[in-house]
Structures are given as C-alpha cells and as structure tokens.
Design a protein around this nucleic acid. Structure first.
Lengths: 329, 329
DNA sequence: TTACTATTGAGACACGTGCCTCAAAGCAAT
DNA sequence: ATTGCTTTGAGGCACGTGTCTCAATAGTAA
C-alpha cells in the first residue's frame, strides 16, 4: 500500500532509526488510509512480552488495604491472559526514606510499572521522578502526589469531603448543632483534602452546623474510645460525626461501646466489612467510598497503557466518589 | 508431562472425540500439576477468532439510550485489540413480535452473542430461549428478563427504588407530606420494581409521607406539563417528586416551567446531560443511576466469557446502584 | 493368529507481529 | 566514475496455539 517492504513498515511502526522522513510519511499515510490497527495480542505474543507491575502499599492491618490486596490477587488471575503479573511490596508509610530507597532499587529490567500508595513527601516525590527517568512507569495510587495532573488513580478527596458534608447537612434537621470530625491522623494530603471539602460545604450550605477541630486516634482503640466518650461528655449538642480516615474500625467500635443518642448522623469512608456492618445495623448513615476492585484494575490498565504508549478510556478510568447507604450495598 | 503427544493434548483441550477416558484424565492431571493456563490471545490468533456481538436496543430519542450508544462506540474502539466487534440494532420496543422476529433471524454464523434490552413479554422470552438453543449467547441488558438468575447486566431496580425512597425520606423534614411519582409508563418490569421498592421504604421507614399513584407522561412534553401543574394545584402539600423512568427530560422541563416551591425534594433516575444540568442548578436533589459505560463493557466481557466458556470476575460485573449528588458528579 | 477399529503420534502450516541478517539499491561528495 | 554511507528489501525464525493429514500403534473380536 505504501509501496515499501514489510521490513520498512516494521522500522516505522517500531520507531527504529535509519528511515527517511519521506518514507515514514508514506507509511503513516497508508496506515491512516487503510485504518490499520496493530494487533497487540499478536505483537505481545511475538515479543513474548509480560507486564511486570508492582504495587507499593503501606504495611498496615487496615481493612481497606486488605480489600486492595484481595483485589490485586483477583486481578492477578483475571489478567494472566494478558500476561500481566502484579506483585506487592509493603513498606512502612511513616518512613519516607525507606519508601524512597525501595523505589530507588527498582530498575526497568525487573519491573515495567509501579503503582505507589505513599504519603507525599519530598523524598518520595523525588524518588518517583527518578524512577520515571530510569524508564519505569510510576503511578500514584489512591494517595495523590502533585505530579502529573491526571496520571494517578484515586478519587477526588476534596469532592469526597464535600459529598460527606452535603449528606451530613441534608440528613440532619435544620437546627444548630456541632459536628465531630475523627481521623486516624490528619497529616496526609488525603485527609486534609477531605476535611477542607467537608468544612467548605458545611460553612457555606449549612451554617447552622459547626464542624469541630479534627480529633486524631492514631489508630489506637483506647484513644478512640476516650475521644468518643469525651466529646459527648463535654459537648452537649453533637449532631453528627464524620470519620474521615480510611480506617473506621477504632472510632466505630468506640461508638458501639459508648452508645450514642441514636438520632446522631454518622458518616465514614471506605467500604469494608466493618463499615458494611455498621451500615446494616444502622450505626452508619452513609459511607463515601471508592471501589477497591476498580482502583486496582484501573491502575493495571493505566500502567499497561503507559508501557504500550497507548491512551486509556477516560470514562472508564474515572474513579467515582461513591455514596453507599444501607439500601444500595 | 502427561506422556502424550501435543496432538493428544490438543484433542483434550479442545474437546475433540476419540480420546480414551484414561488419557483425558492423564492430561488433565498434568495440566493441573503444572498449572497450565491456555494463552487465550495466542489461541484467538491461531483461530483468527473475532467476537461478533450485537446490541439490540429500543429505538427512542431517550438521552440514556444515547449514552449507551456512545459507550458502545467507545467500547468498539477499546476492544478492537481483543477482536471484539459490536453492532447495534434498534427495534420498536412496543412491538414484541418485531423483536422476536429480529432475534429469530440471528444465526451463530453471523453473531456470537447478543445483549438484549427489551421489555419482558412471552414472545421475547421465547425468542431468547430459542436463540440460545441455536447456539447464540443471549444476555438480557438493562431490562431484566426472568431467565437465568445472574446472567444479565443491569442494576437491581428494586434496590434503586428503595434507595430513592430512602434519600427522599431523609432529605425531607419529618413532617407529613405527599410524594408525586412520575413515570413515562409504568408497564415495564423495571418501573414496577422501582416503584415497589420506593413504596416499601416510604411505608415502613417514613410513614408520615404518602406516595401518590404513579402519573404517566407517555413521553409527551405536554402531558408532563399538565401533570406537573395539576399536581400542585390539586394537592397542596406535595413534599417531593420521584421521577422513576429513565427519561427525565419531559417532567424536568415541565418542572422548570412551572416553578415549584423550592424546598421540594426531587429525585430522578439515570445520569444524562439533562439530569446533570438539573443537579448542578439545584432542581434535582439526587440522581440514582447505573454507569452506562460499565453496563456496556460488562455486557461485552460477559458475552466474551460466555463464548469462551469462561467465568467472569463477579465483583467487576456487579452493576452498582449509584447515588449522584451535585457534589460527586 | 488375523483383521479390524479405536486411539495416538509426528509433523506441517497458519495466525499477525517482532526482530535479525545480509544484500541490494540509492545518494552524496570527491 | 569511484567510494563510502544511508536507506530499503528479502527472507527467515520466533511466539503459543489451533487444525489438519497420514502413519503408527494399541486394542478387540473373530
């Protein structure tokens, strides 16, 4: 069609050197004209290509992370047909240097792409950039990093906070009240974004409500219990509780023990066995979540597209801020 | 590994005749032992297999169907690499005989699988069964058919109705009021299920509210306007409006014209440009929807799994009842 | 044992692409 | 026209599987 040999087409398609610009254009024109699309399956077969991906996740007993791990295993099975192998490495997320060191140890000989869930610190940011320079595709995962705008997988945490605030405001009767905000730790960017969204909507749309300063549990059951009981002792008019961290177990079990007045609205994040139970038994009024299976599959698809130099279906990769009630579990 | 030749393994793998049971067992044992998984990409390459799927959809100017069509085109592109070709046929959904005739005209030589969106009638049900007998995989799509329990793609409409009812009840203050229910037509199974879910939750959880009988617009703009204005003339204490059909345009534009008291809660179904606008401008309080892109991709994946005799990832194929507010658009 | 049939093996070619080598042709500077 | 470099062509083998043919072997009934 282009009047050239298969070898030349190959040179053009795979970007090899030593082809005249004029020839390249001829080939591309022909490709355009007959609407040729490379059969990626055949190409991968020929290259006996395997996609070696790595998920770098925080080590924690967090149920949400447990879900993520389950989904990675699931995807492992589902994507074997596509020659995708996904490994997992757990790192202490409080130690940015360890994370950076791990990333620094990865080379393109061993891995094609990495999905990284880690708090944003200068060390990590640098390590990610250097990783990319070395030719390993890196993709911020769930925890955002201010790098390449849309190249990350996770939900818009500000919108999630706004949504939580809206539901809180709309579920409560229109009268003055205070809102307790409980977090594991508010240092992470995700927590800050959620909090800011929550405050924004409460202040602007529901001025009769007042969001109290965040209370941190640091993952401790005891601390959670103390916080919960103290809130209700000192602040008489608590109307709602917003649990903004991804792990709702500690605050929830504290709430179960303390027995709150039952017209209080409680909203938490992330769908886990624990939050599901709390929805069913009526403790939680709503859960704002992102689908862990979708997160994992989206990361895999995006990494694959990156290694192939393709683009992905925008609409499929958008991580939705999902609202879950008892009724649409 | 099994001590047999490649030819025999082929006979076993592809279920050809004339292999002793003992040999079959040996081969399967070996497969089990070394954990062999067939490279589907290579297999399809060798067979130069293409998956020819057909979407049978109602012909209607419905925006939701428009979205579905867009997503089918999108999937078309995204799945070319997997040799999937999806065609669309529109049929008058009020004529079950035409639908049945169309299905009857499909043979396995021309198409591998069909996703069918059609109201449930005896003719259609029969046609689907006969289609399957002829060896064409059929999958009810969006509109459910009481056939094979989980083999369909769409959301649980009863749960959707319950969710709509719950939001309605929770968004409204706890005081007596009436709820208008507007539908295109309430004859379809989907509408009935939504209505039943809605009533159930209103009656049991929010007894101070009363859901009025459904009002049908039959897609007519004028009729919608008349219905909307009459409701508010004759019934003084309308607290909320539930638009339960997939096309909210007629009722919504009627509402825009009539200018309702603005503390009325309005909930509709399906995310479309129209409902999005209504969310943004505050006319709608919530939209209950299913993701059209996900519906289409799920149908394609399920049809592909059916033709390959594989199973799909349960969790990925579950169509969620999504709640959309202005904040998580 | 013989004469069957049922089962198995060996080998070839195909699918669409990648990747390599060697030779041929084109081109520019001298 | 010669030399040396750049660009192109021809052809082969590979990837993992399917599918076919023909021959070889095993098994069974007479």
């Amino acid at each position: 069609m282009a009047g050239v040999s298969r070898a030349t087409v190959d040179r053009v398609l795979n970007g090899r050197e030593g082809v005249k610009k004029k020839t390249v254009d001829k080939v591309n024109a022909a490709i355009e004209e007959i609407g040729f699309v490379r059969n990626i399956a055949a190409a991968n077969l020929a290259k006996s290509r395997t996609y070696r991906f790595l998920f770098v996740l925080p080590e924690s007993g967090d149920q949400f992370h447990g879900e993520i791990l389950r989904r990675i295993n699931e995807a492992q099975t589902a994507y074997t047909a596509d020659m995708v192998k996904a490994a997992v490495r757990l790192v202490d997320q409080n130690d940015p240097f360890k994370i950076a060191a791990l990333l620094a140890s990865l080379s393109p000989d061993v891995v094609d792409g990495v999905a990284i869930m880690a708090p944003e610190t200068p060390q990590v940011r640098d390590a990610i950039l250097r990783l990319q320079e070395r030719g390993v595709h890196a993709l911020p995962f769930i925890s955002n990093q201010t790098l390449n705008g849309d190249q990350w997988v996770g939900m818009d945490n500000h919108a999630a906070g706004v949504t939580a605030g809206t539901l809180m405001g709309r579920f409560l009767p229109i009268k003055a009240g205070k809102l307790a905000v409980i977090a594991d730790s508010i240092l992470s960017r995700d927590s800050l974004e959620r909090r800011s969204g929550f405050d924004q909507v409460i202040n602007s749309e529901f001025p009769h409500l007042a969001a109290l300063p965040s209370l941190e549990t640091y993952g401790s059951q005891d601390r959670a219990k103390r916080i919960v009981s103290e809130i209700f002792r000192h602040q008489g008019d608590i109307a709602g509780v917003y649990i903004l961290s991804s792990e709702a177990r500690a605050p929830l079990s504290a709430i179960w023990k303390v027995q709150l007045p039952h017209n209080i609205v409680i909203i938490a994040h992330e769908r886990t066995p624990c939050t599901e139970n709390a929805l069913v038994d009526g403790t939680l009024d709503a859960v704002i979540t992102q689908d862990p299976g979708h997160l994992v599959r989206s990361a895999v698809r995006k990494l694959r597209a990156l290694t192939d130099g393709r683009s992905t279906l925008q609409s499929q990769e958008k991580i939705r801020v999902e609202i879950i009630l008892k009724t649409n579990l």
